[in-house]
Design a protein around this nucleic acid. Structure first.
Length: 443
RNA sequence: GCGAUUGUAGCUCAGUUGGUUAGAGCGCCGGUUUGUGGUACCGGAGGUCGGGGGUUCAAGACCCCUCAAUCGCCCCA
């Protein structure tokens, strides 16, 4: 018989487990908590859509549509696409469900997305994003609210160190067109000096020359006109309202007049939270205003603004995560004890203590295991304990061991939890005091 | 799609110019300790050297192809 070959995982997919999973979960939970503070409603969206949903929104002929989508025919012959982003699907839902009646709508989603790209660290073919959108709100206050949400999320994740909000405006349609024309003129004048990549960009997507990494291009880019001179009165007023709002909310930002978006439906605000800690994949969260998108999907002109953030990348930036710990380890000795141990474990779990039974291997080994999973205490049950109706309760920190009945165990565990909470409260206060002292020294 | 680096035990890595039975640390299992952990000492298991082909008396090492990860470019919704 030929040896059966184990199938390999698909390139660019990941099995998320252990500490990685803890990080992932923490990011999602934090997002869910913060999004409620801002009144965003969660939505669950289909993982696949008609290909047209993405082809219309992104442009039928762009590279992303022609080369980077997972598109396929289903058994009925319809062309479907695994979602490469949330925004287009949400806009489709907005239109097909008549959600106009709820506008403005603040929506949030998270889940897997699919792009056929070359995998790298923090860049996968099946990856996961957080997403927030406000649909049907054209006022600058919506942009500000969304940015505050993003800023608070990064703060609460504890990763805002080394992350800066880079902000730009692309103006309204008129400003954008004028600027684009000026850029094309500028780059055409210097065409001979441009890199080959940028020469093709000049024809295909001239705004993208602005973030070219070729050293020669940088010089020409630095001399390129910024949008400021081409902004209409309305457009610059809008941008001023956004920056004013951010300042009022104490959200720090820097202007990056080279920051652009690849698609034509973007208007006004464009932003990225960028870190220096992830190499070339420095963008941690990005978004902007896409007032032109819903029209491209066949709806009435509808203003909208949103952002998305990669869960894997956010997870990589987190401090080390403590793993789920077991509070109580139950160690039965002998078959009779196992039945008793199961019922004890059950009772303790009902009482909201995370409990694990270690019933295999040498007793020594089981004690070591209990220690390893971080249990606060071990409960040892043998023939003597079955007879007495009590259990041996061993505090794994102090080594103290006493015979207790279950209600006493529960009491004891509450005490342990409580004193631990007090300890961490104590160290919080201590570190606060140190901070205050340092601030005092600085003055 | 393009360029570069890497791939040896569960993990982190050694392995001289090709040369006998491929090593270490950590982890795992067992013992010293028959119902009691964190230490120490002793022992053990575990390897398609990413995969396939080639050169050679001989390949983990050299050559070709391939797969994957990583770094950068392209793209970036």
């Amino acid at each position: 018989m030929a040896k059966v070959q184990t199938p390999k995982p698909v390139r660019g997919t990941q099995d998320i487990f252990g500490e990685e999973q803890e990080r992932f979960q923490h990011v999602v939970e934090t997002f869910e908590r913060v999004r409620r503070l801002y009144g965003f409603k969660g939505v669950q969206m289909p993982v696949f859509e008609p290909t047209a949903v993405f082809a219309r929104s992104l442009g039928e002929t762009t590279d992303v549509v022609s080369k980077e989508m997972y598109s396929f025919e289903d058994r009925g012959g319809d062309s479907l696409t695994l979602r490469p982003e949330f925004t287009a699907g949400i806009c489709r839902a907005f239109l097909t469900n008549g959600w106009q009646q709820h506008a403005p709508m603040k929506l949030s989603a998270h889940g897997p997305l699919f792009r056929y790209e070359r995998p790298q660290k923090g860049r996968y073919r099946q990856f996961h994003q957080l997403d927030a959108e406000i649909i049907g709100a054209g006022e600058a206050a919506a942009d500000v609210e969304l940015l505050c949400f993003a800023d608070q999320l990064l703060n609460e994740l504890g990763i805002s160190d080394g992350v800066t909000l880079q902000l730009n405006t692309l103006g309204d349609a008129e400003s954008r067109e004028a600027w684009r024309a000026a850029l094309v003129e500028h780059f055409s004048d210097h065409q001979a000096e441009l890199s080959d990549d940028s020469k093709t960009r000049l024809a295909k997507n001239p705004l993208r020359i602005l973030d070219s990494k070729a050293p020669n291009d940088r010089v020409i880019v630095d001399q390129a006109p910024t949008i400021d001179a081409y902004l209409t009165g309305e457009a610059s007023e809008f941008f001023a309202q956004v920056t004013e709002g951010l300042e009022a909310c104490n959200v720090p930002w820097t202007r990056d007049s080279r920051l652009v978006r690849g698609f034509d439906y973007y208007r006004h605000t464009a932003f990225e939270f960028v870190t220096d800690r992830l190499g070339a994949q420095g963008t941690v969260l990005g978004g902007g205003r896409f007032d032109g998108l819903i029209e491209a999907l066949g709806g009435q002109p509808t203003p909208a603004v949103g952002w998305a953030a990669g869960i894997e990348r956010l997870g990589m930036l987190l401090e080390e995560m403590p793993s789920d710990s077991v509070e109580l380890a139950i160690i039965p000795m002998g078959d009779d004890a196992t039945v008793r141990a199961l019922s004890v474990a059950n009772e303790l779990r009902q009482s909201k203590f995370s409990t694990e039974m270690f019933g295999r291997g040498k007793i020594k080994k089981r004690m070591a295991k209990a220690n390893q999973v971080g249990a606060k205490a071990a409960i040892i049950i043998g023939d003597d304990e079955i007879a007495s109706g009590k259990v041996q309760f061993k505090d794994l920190k102090t080594g103290e061991q006493t015979a207790l009945d279950i209600s006493q165990v529960i009491e004891k565990m509450w005490d342990l939890r409580f004193s631990e909470d007090l300890d961490s409260l104590g160290s919080d206060i201590e570190s606060l005091e140190q901070e205050v002292a340092q601030l005092g020294d600085a003055d």
